[in-house]
Amino acid sequence: MGKQVFLKGPYNFYQALKRLTIDPLVDLNVEKQAIKLPIIVENNPLVVHVIQQGTFEEPRFMIQTEDTVNEAALMAELNRIFHWDKPLEDIYTFFQATELAALFQELRGTPFVCDFTLYGCLMKTIIHQQLNMTFAYELTKRFITTYGFKKKGVWFYPTADRVASLSVAELRELQFSQRKAEYVIDTSKLIAEGNLNLEALKNFSDEEVMDKLVRIRGIGRWTAECFLMFGLGRLDLFPVQDIGIQNGIKKYYQLDKKPEKEKMLEMSSHWKPYRTYASLYLWDYLET
Rank of each mutant, 00 (worst) to 15 (best):
A76E: 13
T110M: 14
W283M: 07
S165Y: 02
G148Y: 11
N195Q: 15
M1P: 05
P87H: 07
G153H: 11
T98N: 04
E138S: 12
L17N: 03
F6S: 13
S165A: 15
E66I: 09
V214N: 05
T145S: 05
N44C: 09
L213T: 06
V163S: 04
F156S: 04
K180A: 04
E193F: 11
R217N: 13
C114E: 04
E89G: 03
L228Y: 09
F116Y: 15
Q33R: 15
F104E: 05
M62H: 10
Q129L: 03
S279A: 15
Y157S: 06
V69W: 00
Y11Q: 00
I35L: 08
L286G: 12
I185V: 08
Y183S: 03
A97L: 08
A72R: 13
I51K: 13
E199N: 14
D236H: 06
L237K: 02
R217C: 00
V5I: 15
E66V: 09
R19Q: 12
M267W: 14
T98D: 06
K151M: 09
Q96M: 14
A278V: 11
I91G: 02
K151D: 06
F227G: 01
F238M: 12
F56T: 11
R172T: 09
Y183Q: 08
D115Q: 10
F95K: 05
K151A: 10
E138V: 00
Y253P: 02
F112N: 04
P87C: 12
R234L: 09
L213N: 04
M267K: 06
K150G: 05
V47P: 02
R275K: 15
N29I: 09
T223V: 10
A76N: 08
V48P: 01
P38Y: 10
Q96E: 11
K150H: 04
W155T: 04
E260M: 10
P38M: 11
W271M: 12
Q129D: 07
D236Q: 09
A164R: 07
G153T: 08
A72H: 10
T55R: 11
Q254C: 12
Y281A: 01
G231R: 00
L139G: 01
L74I: 05
V48I: 11
G244I: 07
F116G: 01
L103A: 08
D115T: 05
E57A: 09
F82L: 04
F143A: 06
Y119P: 02
K263G: 02
R80G: 01
L232G: 10
F156H: 07
K18I: 12
P10Q: 10
A16E: 02
K202T: 08
V209Q: 05
R172P: 00
R60Y: 02
A16H: 06
Q241Y: 14
N197F: 08
E99M: 04
L228C: 15
A72E: 15
R162D: 09
L174G: 08
E138L: 08
K250N: 07
T159D: 06
M264S: 07
T125P: 05
F13R: 00
Q175A: 12
A73P: 02
V209E: 05
A34L: 14
P273F: 12
